[in-house]
């Protein structure tokens, strides 16, 4: 029973996404398959070179890089949202899969959880 966690909000403005990431890691800890989908303003999570020590926060870019180690199944990003916010394939970190994150795609998961 795979869970899709959808992050559709930009990082650093609230704790919503961090809590969702924590939940994804917890699912993985108990060998429950979990994937993350970044869509809408959530694609800003994937920008390279984030240095949020300037605002006294930890880097979600670096946090996210632990996902494969903890056993997160897939990191997915909605291609239309990338286009909207000016991100190309080259701008994305390794291990991210570009997909069409529409309702059909989301509906294929038995459990879906929107962050925040």
């Amino acid at each position: 029973m795979e869970t899709l966690i959808v992050i559709d909000q930009a990082p650093y403005g609230s704790f919503a996404g961090r809590e969702a990431l924590d939940m994804a890691f917890s699912l993985a800890a108990f060998d429950q398959p979990a994937s993350l989908l970044f869509t809408g303003a959530g694609v800003h999570w994937l920008r390279k070179g984030q240095a949020p020590d300037s605002i006294h926060q930890k880097s979600v870019e670096k946090n996210l890089s632990a996902a494969p180690i903890f056993g997160i199944e897939q990191l997915l990003v909605d291609s239309a949202s990338c286009e909207r916010f000016g991100l190309t394939v080259d701008d994305l970190p390794d291990g991210i899969t570009l997909i069409d994150g529409n309702a059909d795609m989301i509906g294929r998961y038995q459990n879906v959880l929107f962050a925040g």
């Binding site: 924590d22 890691f25 917890s26 993985a28 800890a29 108990f30 930890k58 880097s59 670096k62 946090n63 890089s65 632990a66 180690i69 903890f70 056993g71």
Partner: peptide, 13 residues
């Protein structure tokens, strides 16, 4: 990664 492994299980992993 700027985080501690969040739990024992993930520490072991």
């Amino acid at each position: 990664h700027e985080i501690s492994p969040p739990s024992n299980r993930l520490f072991v992993k």
